[in-house]
Simulated assay, not measured.
Amino acid sequence: MTALGFLYPGHSAEDDYPRIEQLLGSDVRLDLVHTDIGEDAPERLAKGVEQLRLAGAEAIVWACAGGSFVHGWEGAQEQVRALATTAGMPASATSFAFVHAVRELGSLRVAVGATYPEDVAGLFVDFLGAGGVEVTGVHSAGVVTAAEVGAWREAEILALARAADTPEAAAVLLPDTGLHTAAFLPALEKKLGKPVLTANQVTVWEALRLTNRRVNAPGLGTLFTREPIVQV
């Protein structure tokens, strides 16, 4: 059994995690601890670490893109290093998960469909650029609250992805762990005709990567079915 730990801000799309656990269909357990929204300082994140450690987690991921990339590449790295030191195990964050997943797929030109306001979406584009990922198109939905995003379903998510997509993009990224996407990944990829990477999906994949696990799970999209192109 591989136990993976996640620090998840607030309550929005946390039910994606038991769904993903079921879709993995293997000996993987996903343990989730909630943090307060906006509390992304290492000392605050550390409050949930002990609970995950006692649960037997082998790696921890801060399941939040915005609470990571807004600090820039170096700031996000410092955040993850502090988390790993506190946890005494490998650690990462959703923002880095996107970069690593894009590299693995070899899709270094992407489109971004962001629920965030334009300025925040721009910070994510900058973060991707620092990781060597080129953004060919970006669309901002301008949503501020996680509660609103958490109510979106397949139609709204597909519209966001389509609004961002460009012919040059090899993949479409949807960077918000507040979005429910685990149930819609195959449908989104079929309708767009290319890989779709979503926040909760890549967060779980990143935790598996940290523990050197690879699980074939077609229900979770291309990322969980492809052999690695680039080892990170």
Rank of each mutant, 00 (worst) to 15 (best):
L52K: 05
A101L: 10
P228M: 02
A182Y: 12
V135F: 13
P9T: 00
G131P: 04
G25M: 00
E134A: 14
P175N: 10
G75H: 14
R81P: 08
K191E: 14
G5E: 07
T2G: 01
T86R: 13
W62R: 02
A97R: 06
N200F: 03
P42E: 07
V110I: 14
H180Q: 06
A114F: 08
A147N: 04
A164Y: 06
A87T: 12
Y17M: 00
A147T: 11
G129H: 12
T203I: 08
A187R: 15
R162C: 11
N212K: 14
P117V: 13
E189V: 08
D40N: 12
P117Y: 12
A82Y: 13
G178C: 06
V28A: 02
D15T: 15
G129I: 11
F124G: 00
A101G: 12
F224L: 00
A101V: 15
A76G: 04
L188T: 04
V230H: 06
P90Y: 12
A182Q: 06
T115I: 15
R103P: 07
A97I: 03
G122L: 02
A87D: 10
E50K: 06
T35A: 09
D16P: 05
L173D: 05
R103H: 15
V28Y: 05
D15C: 02
R109F: 08
F124Y: 03
E189T: 10
V133P: 10
M89Y: 14
A183M: 08
A163D: 12
K194R: 15
V112K: 04
D36V: 11
G75E: 13
P167Q: 11
A91C: 09
L54A: 03
D176Q: 08
T177C: 08
G5A: 06
G132R: 03
L54P: 00
F224I: 03
H34Y: 09
N212L: 11
G150Q: 06
R103T: 11
V204A: 02
A183H: 11
L220Y: 10
A91G: 10
E134S: 13
G106T: 13
G25H: 01
L123D: 13
E206S: 01
D40P: 05
D165Q: 12
E14K: 00
V133R: 04
V135A: 08
G113K: 12
K190D: 14
A187T: 15
T198C: 13
I229P: 01
T35E: 04
D15W: 13
L4S: 02
E50R: 03
D126R: 03
L83A: 06
R103A: 15
T225L: 05
V80K: 06
Y8S: 01
L220P: 01
A111G: 14
A146R: 02
G38A: 12
T86K: 13
P42D: 09
